[in-house]
Simulated assay, not measured.
Amino acid sequence: MKLLTSAILIATILAAASAQAQDIAAGERSWNKCRACHQIGETAKNGVGPHLNGLFGRHTGEVEGYSYSAANKAANLTWDEAIFAEYIKDPKAKIPGTKMVFAGIKNEKEIADLTAFLKQFGKDGKKL
């Protein structure tokens, strides 16, 4: 009985962890909120916003050929999961003066899923 109880407990913990795991497919659906201004992938170009290939590890204001706001250039941030999560919740709060017009994504799980989706793409736009 004790072994069965332990097995049930472990299964419950694993199911909960799985439910919290990042969901790339859900992140791709969330990406639809971004694609009006940004592109990603091998054919991505700058548009209203810069392309987002290789976003994580890149410095703010660094995409060649994109005209950034002075605030974004001066922010001196390196995009990582934590900075991106803060930014995407409320871009104007994280970088006052940014020209990004977006209400933000408040849901932590949606941010994690979107992050997982974006992290798939290297600097060249190819999936890693």
Rank of each mutant, 00 (worst) to 15 (best):
I105Q: 04
K2W: 08
D90G: 11
A15F: 01
S18G: 14
G49T: 07
K45S: 10
V63K: 11
G125C: 03
S67I: 08
V48G: 08
M100A: 06
W31V: 05
E28D: 09
K73V: 12
K92A: 13
E42S: 13
A16G: 11
V101C: 02
E108M: 00
P50M: 08
A70E: 15
Y66A: 00
C34N: 14
E62T: 13
M100T: 08
Q39Y: 06
Q20V: 02
T43Y: 03
K92S: 12
A11C: 14
K94A: 10
K94T: 13
I88V: 15
N32A: 15
A82K: 12
L9K: 10
Q22H: 00
A116Q: 04
G27H: 06
A85W: 11
D80A: 10
A17G: 10
C37I: 02
Q120S: 04
K45F: 02
A7C: 04
V48M: 13
K123I: 02
L114A: 06
F56W: 05
L4Y: 11
G27F: 00
Q120Y: 03
I83V: 15
N72A: 13
T115S: 12
Q39L: 06
C34A: 13
N72R: 04
D113S: 07
D80N: 15
H51E: 12
H59K: 15
Y87H: 13
D90S: 15
I83A: 14
A15L: 13
K106Y: 00
A116S: 08
K94E: 09
G49Q: 04
G57Q: 03
P96A: 02
T115K: 06
A82L: 07
D23I: 00
K45T: 10
K92H: 05
L55M: 13
A36T: 10
D113A: 02
F121K: 05
R35H: 08
E28C: 00
N72M: 15
E81D: 14
K45I: 01
L14E: 01
S6C: 04
K33H: 01
L3I: 10
K109H: 02
K2A: 12
C37A: 08
E110Y: 03
C34T: 12
F117V: 01
E42N: 11
M1L: 14
K99R: 14
A17V: 13
K92D: 04
W31N: 05
H59L: 09
I40T: 08
G97A: 09
A36L: 09
I10D: 00
A75R: 09
R35A: 06
A36K: 12
A25Q: 05
A16P: 07
A103C: 01
V48Q: 14
A19K: 07
H59M: 13
Q39V: 00
G47D: 10
N107E: 11
A103V: 11
K106P: 02
A11L: 15
E81M: 03
R35I: 04
H51G: 04
E86A: 15
S69P: 04
G125H: 04
G125Y: 06
L128D: 10
E42Y: 05
Y87S: 07
L114N: 03
T78M: 12
N72I: 05
I10M: 11
E62L: 01
Q22N: 09
L55G: 09
C34D: 12
R29C: 02
L52V: 09
L114Y: 06
F102V: 05
Y87T: 07
P91L: 04
G97S: 10
W79P: 07
L9S: 13
G104C: 08
N32Q: 15
N32I: 01
D23G: 06
